[in-house]
Design a protein around this nucleic acid. Sequence first.
DNA 1: ATTTCACCCCTCTAGACAGCATGTC
DNA 2: CTAGAGGGGTGAAAT
Length: 721
Amino acid sequence: MISNADIELPQIMARGLRDRGIVDFKPPQLEALQNGLLNGYSIVVSAPTASGKTLIGEMALVNAVLKGFKGIYTSPLKALAYEKFNEFKSWEKYGIRITISTGDYEVTDEELARLENYDIIVSTYERLDSIMRRNPVWLKKVGTLVIDELHMIGDENRGHIVEMIAIRAKMMGVQIVGLSATIGNSEELARWLGAKLVRSEWRPVKLYEFVTYYLGSSKGWVIHIPSDFMEMDIPNTVGDITEYWILRAAKEGFNVLEFKYSRKAVEELAAKYSHVLCENLSSNDREQLNLLVTKLRESVNDFEYEGLSSLIKCGAAYHHAGLTPEARKFVEEAFRERLIKYVAATPTLAMGVNLPARVVIINTKFFNGRTVTRIPILEYKQLAGRAGRPQYDPYGIVIVAKDSRTQNEALYYVKGNPEPVHSVLWNGEALRRHLLAVIASGEANTLHKLISFFSNSFASLKIGRSVIESKIERTLTLLEELTMISSEGVGKKLTFIPSKLGIVTSRLYVDPITSYIIVDGLTHAKRISEIYYLTLVGMTPDFSEVSINKSVYEYYSNFIDSYDSYEEIPPENLEFKMNDPKVDRLRGFIVGSILRDWISEVPEREILQRYGIEAGDLRVVKENGEWLTYAASIIARTVNMHNHSEYLKLLNERLKHGIREDALDLVKLRYVGRVRARMLLNHGIRTIRDIVDREGDVIKILGENWGKKIVEEARSLTYKT
DNA sequence: ATTTCACCCCTCTAGACAGCATGTC
DNA sequence: CTAGAGGGGTGAAAT
């Protein structure tokens, strides 16, 4: 039995918790239970990182299952979803069936049917939104929805997805368990959801916030040591605050995490302090790190190895989204094992997996496109929450605002309250996507019903009804112009009917304007080519921004005007402009060029150099290209442009592997990607059949090791067919 | 004659989710 | 209002 629980737990749950070694509940967990978590009451928990929020959600889910319902857990990141999925698996031995659904798996009818067989479904926000739009029958069986990182509802880019999920859950009348960071208006959020609020400041490890500020290169940093901090040997001023903690970390065997909002800066920090570390490593550390570097060689590509190996050899590393997921994982893993003592990171690290360190140093200033701003308190708290590893560290230390110049600048984060979060459903582009989704799914089809649907939104607590009505009406007009919907009847009987294109658009999960741009671009094309298609998908609002440095940008901006004379590219979209139509087109042309290089088998290193991007960025461009060429192919088919559709499908296949058309057959084999496929093709081996027939040649070309493996693969594949 | 150095000006700046089937009278 | 580091160029001083 859980020692401090004054609430009776279902037997299976009690057993499961005990098996996991949970002997007592943490304060927020207890409070959630006391507020009726197991009686189906909706609850919003507002508490710091690592205060045991996940378990609250987990108990609610298991409880729902034990009562015969389904439970859904949803999170902002795939990585987080996988992490929770693996954690929740411990309930499988009690007969609870757990599964995961993210963009890595299809939302086919079969997938939807498959999900029916599970009790707990783990998903990302977008995937859950996508599923809810399809309204599978089993949705009625859902009793509990856990929304992790509920404060994301205020996120400019993705908050509207969270809001839509919550609106639907509210309308379904299910128990909602919202797990949120500490925010300024948690009462408001809870009230909106009809939930009880559990607010807690409790942390598993004591946190000491060191107010620190910089007085310039000659005077260094001033440190205000919290009065209740027990160690007396910390100086009041220090020449380099990061260096100070790194030296202690190397000696005492803990680790240090520094956050800064710039990739370049983060790389520079890692380089700078790797030298400091290198001179202070124990021989044991040195040995282990050398071993680690040989492992690095096998885990990441050449250019990332070049960037990281000299740092890791000294026990330092950087971490940002320019790294491939493999490299990021490697750094995280080594840091967790405390082989790497110091990591300088952009906020990726704080958003994603749980990776605490005893000392967290926070830089708070960043450039927002116009001026220098400071991160919100909410974000500071998220970063600070990473200080202190439960079990390993006696306490956590946060160096508050290393880059502040005065005490007050730093104090702002210690004394201030986290900002409130606001709905983003009504600003900008979100509404048109969701309005279409609601109409396409049949959730509502008259003006009256639509207004009543969206009056459940978080925003409607603040926005007047007339504003909502007029926004909805304006957006409906836009959707009609985009031919996503049509209307019938007048006045009260005015009904909206989704077009075929509208239904497909909603299901593909793209912006209606993306869909429109694709149809428009394909309709008006004269001489169509690879670059035309790729630029077209690159121009759509769904293709995420890529940061391109100025010189590359200028080069292409000069190039684009002369380009049309030998290969046509899509014109600027003037009707439904997103930002600046010229800029959209140029951006499309640049990502289109990147994608074309990729499927022309230009070596990866050369692509990165040519466009001044990093391996992780190329990955993102590639993924966007894959998703949107697929979407475009389906869109083309629904408007009966079958030739375009076929060609886009082909491009989609080529993008997956980064190959020319002639390699499509070969890359079906495991262990064969763009490079080996080309090596084989250069020797006239064109098909899987050829590989089987010319085993000797294959081994000569690829070497004994890989050659044999690949011939084996080819054999097993030809036998099957 | 060559190297060094102080100084100015310019440039640059976080992240990551989504699809996957099929057209008939 | 609110940054800070690095790179490159320039011109003058130092060697």
